[in-house]
Design a protein around this nucleic acid. Structure first.
Lengths: 253, 253
DNA sequence: AAAGGAGGCTTTGTCGGACAAAAGGCTATT
DNA sequence: AATAGCCTTTTGTCCGACAAAGCCTCCTTT
C-alpha cells in the first residue's frame, strides 16, 4: 500500500482539451456554437497548432465537438456520439456471451416497455404502429425485419421519455438485435411470431396494461432466444468479432 | 430525400487509427501488447509523425490504447476505460433529471440483484459482507457511507457475472449514488436505514431468495428517493453540472 | 439586374525538421 | 554489489511550409 499516487504532469494538448471541455460542461459553450479556427485557438492558448490539433482530436473522439465536412468546429449535441458503439466494441473485446446480452436485454427491454406503458404519447404510438405496418409488410425479408425489430425496441425506449434508460440499453441493443437477421434466415416462422409479439406489445402499451406488456416482452425475448438456439447457435458462445465489426460499421454512419 | 450520401474522404490520421483498431478488434493485437514507438509507426505507415500522433490520440481516447506515464503504447483492457464517465457527462449535458436516473436505477439495480441471487459465489458474498461491515462502522461519516453504498451496488453488479449489465448500469450509477452523501448529511437516520436494507439484500442473495431480494432492493431505492425529497431536492430537477463535474473528476482517477 | 463563374482568401490536412525534457539503459566508480 | 553519472531513445512541443478544399467576392454574361 503506497502512501502517494503517481504525479501526472498534464501535457499541453490535454490542457487544451480540458479547457474547451470545461467551457462546454459548464454551459458557457452550448451545442451548435462554433469553437473557432485552429489559428484562433493557437492565438488564445499560445501553443503550437500541432498541439491544438491533438487536443481537438481528443474532444472530437469524446463526442463533445464535431467537425462538419472538414470545416468549422462545432460543439455538438452530446447524444449518440458513437459512445454506445465504442462500448459495444469494448464488450466484444471482452468476449461477452450471448447469454449476458440476453439477460441484460431482458432487464432493460422489460424496463423499457414498462416505461413506455406509463409515458407513451399518441405520437409514439403512431410511430410504433408505423413500424408494425412496415414489419408486417416485410416478414419475408430478414434484413428489413432485423432493422425494424431494432427500431421497434429503440422506439419503445424513446417512448419512456427516459434518456438515461435509452442510453443504457443502446450498447447491448447494438450487439443483440443484429442477430435477429440470422435467426430469421434460419427459422422460417420467426418473423411471423415477432410481428405477433410486437402487435401484442403495442396493444398493451396503448391499453396502459403493465402486466400484459411485461408478459409479451418477456415472451418476445424468450422467442428470440429459442430462435437463436434453433438456428444452431450456442447461447454461451461469445459475440464474435467479425459479427461485431459488422454491427459497428453499420451504426457509425 | 437525397439519393446519395455525402462522400467522406478519410484523412490519413483516421486511417492510422483505423488500421491499428482493426488489428485490435480482430484480435491480432491483444491487450498488453506493445504498439511500438511513434517512429516505428511513422516508418510502417509512411506518414508524418504529427499524423501518427493524431491517430494515437483518437485510439487513446477510444480506450483501445493506453500510454503509461508518457512511455510505451499498450493495447489496453477494454473495460470501463472512462467510457462510462463520458456517457455520464453526455447525460448531464442533456439535463437529465433525477427522476430519469431513479427510474433507470430501479430497473438496473433490481435486475442486478436478481442476477446476483442466481450467480453470486462465496467470494462475492464475502466481499459484500466486508462492505457491510465497513458500512456499519461508518454510519456517521456521509462521505464514506456514499462511497460504500456505491461500492455495494457495484459489487452486486459484479456478482451477476454479467459484464454487459455491469457496464450498462455504470453511467447511471456514476450520477446516481454520489448524491447519497448529500442525503446522509441532511437526513440523519438515512445511513442506518441504508445499512439495514443492505443487510437484508445480502441475506436474500445468500438465501437465493429472488422475491425477497427484489423487495428489499426496491425498498432501498425508494428510501433513497424519499431521502432525496426530504433533503429538500426536487426529483424532477436536472442533475446539476457542478455536481456532475465533481462525480466525473473523482471517477477518472 | 440576376445568375453563374473565376479568381483570391482562408482553413485544414499533411509534411519535414528541430530541440528540450523525461525515461531507460549502460558503464564506471566506490 | 550498489550506486552515481552518462548516453541513447522517445515523447512532447515547436517552427515553418504547402497543397487541396471550402468560402467569399467580384466580375462577366445573358
Amino acid at each position: 500500500m503506497e502512501r502517494f499516487d503517481r504525479i501526472k504532469v498534464p501535457s499541453a494538448y490535454e490542457m487544451v482539451a480540458e479547457a474547451i471541455e470545461a467551457e462546454i460542461v459548464s454551459g458557457r459553450l452550448r451545442p451548435g456554437d462554433e469553437i473557432g479556427t485552429e489559428a484562433a485557438l493557437v492565438r488564445q492558448f499560445g501553443v503550437n497548432r500541432s498541439t491544438v490539433r491533438e487536443g481537438i482530436r481528443v474532444l472530437e473522439q469524446g463526442g463533445l465537438v464535431r467537425r462538419e465536412a472538414s470545416r468549422k468546429l462545432f460543439v455538438c449535441e452530446p447524444r449518440a456520439g458513437g459512445l454506445s458503439t465504442r462500448i459495444s466494441r469494448a464488450l466484444v473485446l471482452q468476449d461477452v456471451t450471448f447469454r449476458e446480452l440476453f439477460d441484460t436485454a431482458m432487464v432493460l427491454e422489460v424496463g423499457s416497455v414498462e416505461g413506455a406503458v406509463v409515458h407513451a404519447d399518441a405520437d409514439m404510438l403512431a410511430a410504433l404502429e408505423d413500424n408494425q405496418e412496415r414489419l408486417e409488410a416485410a416478414v419475408n425479408n430478414p434484413v428489413v425485419v432485423a432493422e425494424l425489430d431494432s427500431e421497434f425496441h429503440a422506439l419503445l425506449a424513446r417512448a419512456c421519455g427516459n434518456r438515461v434508460l435509452e442510453m443504457a440499453r443502446e450498447p447491448a441493443a447494438l450487439l443483440f438485435f443484429p442477430s435477429t437477421e440470422m435467426i430469421c434466415r434460419r427459422v422460417p416462422e420467426g418473423a411471423g411470431r415477432m410481428a405477433q409479439a410486437h402487435r401484442f406489445i403495442i396493444d398493451a402499451v396503448r391499453a396502459r396494461d403493465l402486466q400484459l406488456s411485461r408478459t409479451w416482452m418477456r415472451r418476445h425475448l424468450v422467442d428470440w432466444r429459442k430462435g437463436f438456439v434453433r438456428a444452431g447457435r450456442e447461447i454461451d458462445e461469445p459475440v464474435e468479432r467479425i459479427f461485431a465489426r459488422y454491427a459497428l460499421s453499420k451504426s457509425q454512419s
